[in-house]
């Protein structure tokens, strides 16, 4: 008699759905939040080597991962590669994952290191890419129509340029706080810095961005 049945009954819905093989796009939607308990269950199943149980984790973090990577890399294709590579690294290292931690900050730590590595290697290789070309790689604004919408798009272009000017260290903390709204303890975890220094680093980053935007004549995105 194995313990399979009782364990089966204790599985969360996400895990059951993953086992049934129809999790997938229908059941676990992009950006859906998973509780820590469900995440742990999924990770335990993944450690058994079944990649199906990794899908709910990917679906839960791919959108936020993409925003963070885009904020850091400023390039849609590079951000996509960084997120995908980070998921692969997370999968390979699940065996070493500390089950007392939560998956999110651990994944974003991997993603942040991946972005940094890619940025370093890109900076070393592609010095010929001009600032204007990089700006063209920004995601197109979702606004439509002329006039006010055009102003809004311009404001966003300036905002991206401001983010670019503040440097990698300021940008990564701004992205984690302002785009993803991580708590200070999570930011400290992801950036591997003491929690006590997060507020100070955020202040300097925000001030640097404000100054950069003032220099660029930024008037705000507006409502």
């Amino acid at each position: 008699m194995t313990t399979f049945e009782p364990l089966e009954r204790r599985d969360s819905n996400a895990v059951k759905e993953a086992r049934q093989g129809h999790v997938v796009s229908a059941q676990i939607t992009q950006g859906a939040e998973l509780t820590n308990e469900v995440e742990r269950e999924l990770i335990l199943k993944c450690r058994g080597g079944d990649a199906r149980f990794f899908e709910p984790l990917v679906r839960a973090y791919e959108a936020s991962g993409m925003r963070v990577a885009m904020g850091m890399m400023r390039d849609q294709d590079a951000a996509h590669d960084a997120v995908q590579e980070s998921f692969v690294k997370a999968w390979k290292n699940l065996g070493r994952f500390d089950m007392k931690r939560t998956f999110g900050p651990w994944f974003f730590q991997i993603l942040r290191n991946q972005c940094r590595d890619m940025l370093r290697s890109r900076q070393a290789r592609a010095k010929h890419v001009t600032k204007d070309e990089r700006l063209e790689e920004r995601p197109a604004a979702v606004d439509t129509g002329p006039g006010r919408d055009m102003e809004r798009t311009d404001a966003k272009r300036i905002l991206w340029e401001g983010l670019e000017q503040v440097g990698d260290e300021h940008r990564e903390i701004l992205v984690l706080k302002e785009l993803e709204d991580f708590r200070y303890n999570e930011i400290a975890n992801i950036l591997e810095i003491p929690e006590g220094t997060v507020a100070s680093r955020l202040f300097h980053a925000r001030r640097a961005l404000r100054e950069a935007l003032e220099d660029l004549g930024y008037a705000g995105v507006g409502s």
């Binding site: 796009s25 993409m66 979702v142 905002l159």
Partner: peptide
């Protein structure tokens, strides 16, 4: 608020 609006523009591809 302005920075959050940047995040809203970023498309999240289905990478599974």
């Amino acid at each position: 608020a302005d920075l959050r609006s940047l995040g809203a523009d970023i498309e999240a591809p289905d990478m599974w």
